[in-house]
Simulated scan of single mutants.
Amino acid sequence: MKAFVTAQLTEQGINELSQSLSLEFGGWGYEGVKLTPEQLVERAKDCEILIVGYEDITEDVLRGLPRLQYIACTRGGIENIDVELVKCYHITLSNTPGRNASAVADLTMGLMIGISRFIPQTYRYIMERRWGDVPWDIAGNTPYKRFAGPELEQKTVGLIGYGAIGRKVAKRAKGFDMNVIVYDPYLKEANEDIFVASTLEEVLTTSDFISLHCKLSSETKNIICKETLNKMKAGAYLINSARGGLVNEEDLFQALLNKRIAGAALDVLVEEPMDPNHPFLQLENIILTPHIGGASQDILYHQTEMVVKDVQHFVQGKRPLHALT
């Protein structure tokens, strides 16, 4: 069978696949440029398998590749693929759920510590030599007093969404001796030592940290807004390493400006890259990172392992382990 690969894979993974497939490479993972649907059709003609990362799978692609039987995508969220359309063409589709779960969970905990213990602010205080802002002595408004923040131990983190990432955040939070409360209306069971809330309000009103780990949908868009922010503790912190659209940014800006909540740490925004004049840049009680939750050197190994196993299953006539269709 012949496969066209645009997803970045390890050399070992490529060697394993080449034992049963004829491979050709191009696109984002190998040329640094995302192929258009037209280019993908031209480059992948006569292929039975596509192994893609960010290339869009549109009807033009599906129509233009009549021999295509299987699409393996090295992403957990596959916004670049119309799943229902793939079903209509009776093509098998798999993804790599949880490939970046550890990376995002690590960053979430880092953001939690960073915003509550003023790590970016104190870094700038030192590097920009702003000692006049907070006199460095043993009395008065010292850094020790000015930048005092809460410990994580015995604090409560509320997780909105409890999928692969949420579970890993809960495990890490337990390592810090935190209490974990979860709100996820789709949660069927939770064997871990956590408290499952029956309402969103219960999480908002009891948590010292709110961390978002749900998908963006019509139900969750702007789930953090003026109404929900007003239900959070005055000293609480918001962490968002999921999707920018979960937060109404104007409402959050006002809540931070007026110190309605203590702070926020955001790895994702509604528009990326962010506007250089974004109101958030006026604030001191916020941390902003440029969507690096999944930017781990180890993810390449995770996604390669999952894709190789799935492709091998398909070639052997078995259903891929992470099949969606």
Rank of each mutant, 00 (worst) to 15 (best):
M1K: 10
K2M: 09
A3F: 07
V5N: 12
G13W: 03
I14E: 14
S22D: 15
F25R: 05
F25Q: 05
Y30V: 06
V33L: 06
V33N: 12
K34E: 13
L35I: 09
Q39D: 11
K45R: 15
K45T: 14
I49A: 13
I51Q: 15
L65K: 13
Y70H: 06
I71M: 09
C73A: 10
C73W: 03
T74P: 00
T74Y: 00
E84A: 09
V86W: 06
V86E: 04
C88F: 02
T92Y: 01
L93Q: 02
L93A: 04
S94L: 09
S94N: 10
P97V: 03
R99Y: 12
N100T: 09
V104L: 08
A105Q: 07
A105S: 14
L107T: 07
L107K: 02
T108V: 13
G110Y: 09
G110W: 09
L111N: 10
R117W: 08
R117C: 07
F118E: 01
I119C: 04
I119N: 01
Y123N: 12
R130C: 04
W136Q: 13
N141W: 07
T142H: 06
T142R: 11
F147H: 09
P150S: 02
V157Q: 04
V157Y: 05
Y162C: 05
K171F: 10
V180L: 04
I181H: 01
N191T: 04
I194Q: 07
T199N: 04
T199M: 03
L204K: 03
T205S: 11
T206N: 10
H213Q: 11
H213D: 08
L216Q: 08
K221F: 00
K226E: 07
Y237H: 14
R243P: 06
R243T: 09
R243L: 12
G244T: 04
L252F: 07
F253K: 11
F253V: 12
A265L: 06
V270I: 11
P273C: 12
D275Y: 05
P276N: 15
Q282G: 00
Q282E: 11
L288F: 08
T289I: 02
P290G: 11
I292P: 00
I292C: 07
G294T: 14
G294W: 15
Q297Y: 04
I299T: 14
I299P: 00
M306N: 04
V307K: 06
K309W: 06
F314M: 08
V315R: 06
G317P: 14
K318I: 06
K318E: 15
L321C: 06
L321S: 10
